[in-house]
């Protein structure tokens, strides 16, 4: 809706519309509170001292703001920087690998209109449904026999199991949106399909590829079971798994430290997410939005 358009209708606002407006703002207020309250609590707790963070009658605002929980992460005996690097490294590589392998398949599924193309497309999505927990044991054995257990490479393979089907599905959606006529000229000139894909299609869907990559990265970052199972030594562990592992140890649950680590775990994801949020959803649902 354009601003001019809205202006033109303003004078027609009845009392009912005004009540509607009031409801709208009440609803918005609720939405903001609902979203922000837990996030506020995470940050506020991370700034409290250990004793204040655990006390039975919680303080809504930190009495004395301290950064000790954050400095504890950086300077503590556990290698949190290493966990962070591990997470970034494995998730980033998994995202790139998944996208690169997915591009040709997505293109073929989108363009080559063999009868079973849509079935193969759905099949790939269905593959994504298979319970990760059940895949764990066989995957563990594969990694073991290939000597990839407890390596970042093995973890990347694990991430690819769910990242790849999703990447194919999303990239296919982006390619579907590229009019086939754009390729016709190149095809007439006799360029092979690989060339058409790399020279014409890929540059056009470049933002979509980034979006897909970040989606896979986020899913990988969120994954808990795979690093818990495939990584056996702590120094190679990812941030979310280390969070689960090191803050609920045999001694005590340190809520302040945990919330500080949570903030640190969340920030990279949030940054990645905000760069692409809009096109990400469009990619996920492209298949339906464009009506294929």
């Amino acid at each position: 809706m354009t601003d001019a358009g809205r202006q033109g209708f303003r004078h027609r606002q009845s009392a009912g519309r005004r009540i509607g407006r009031g409801l709208q703002f009440a609803g918005l207020g609720f939405a903001l509170l609902w979203t922000l309250a837990p996030l506020y609590w995470m940050v506020a707790t991370s700034l409290k001292t250990e004793l204040e963070a655990t006390q039975l009658d919680p303080t809504l605002f930190p009495h004395s703001i301290t950064l000790q929980n954050y400095t504890g992460l950086a300077g503590g005996s556990l290698p949190f920087m290493q966990f962070f690097v591990n997470s970034v490294l494995t998730c980033l590589v998994a995202a790139i690998v998944a996208v690169v392998i997915a591009i040709p398949a997505a293109y073929a599924l989108s363009r080559a209109k063999f009868r079973a193309a849509s079935q193969v497309g759905y099949l790939i999505l269905i593959v994504r449904m298979f319970p990760m927990v059940v895949l764990l044991a066989p995957l563990y054995l594969i990694l073991l026999t290939t000597g990839l257990l407890d390596t970042h490479f093995g973890l990347i393979v694990g991430y690819t199991t769910f990242g790849l089907p999703f990447a194919v599905w999303m990239i296919k959606g982006f390619i579907d949106a590229v009019p086939i006529e754009i390729e016709e000229a190149a095809r007439v000139d006799g360029y092979p399909r690989w060339q058409i894909l790399l020279r014409i299609v890929v540059p056009l869907i470049y933002p979509g590829l980034i979006t897909t990559g970040i989606f896979v990265l986020m899913e990988a970052w969120n994954n808990l079971i795979y690093p818990l199972t495939f990584i056996t030594t702590l120094d190679k562990q990812t941030l979310p798994a280390a969070l689960q592992l090191t803050f609920t140890g045999q001694f005590k649950t340190d809520w302040g430290g945990m919330m500080a680590a949570s903030v640190v775990t969340t920030l990279p994801l949030m940054i990645a997410f905000f760069t692409v949020q809009r096109s990400m959803v469009r990619g996920l649902t492209a298949g339906s939005v464009t009506g294929t």
């Binding site: 979310p240 919330m259 775990t265 969340t266 994801l269 949030m270």
Partner: peptide, 13 residues
């Protein structure tokens, strides 16, 4: 913004 919060963090929080 909540969508960018990792599941483990949501759970602990």
């Amino acid at each position: 913004s909540p969508w960018a919060v990792p599941f483990v963090v949501v759970a602990f929080l």
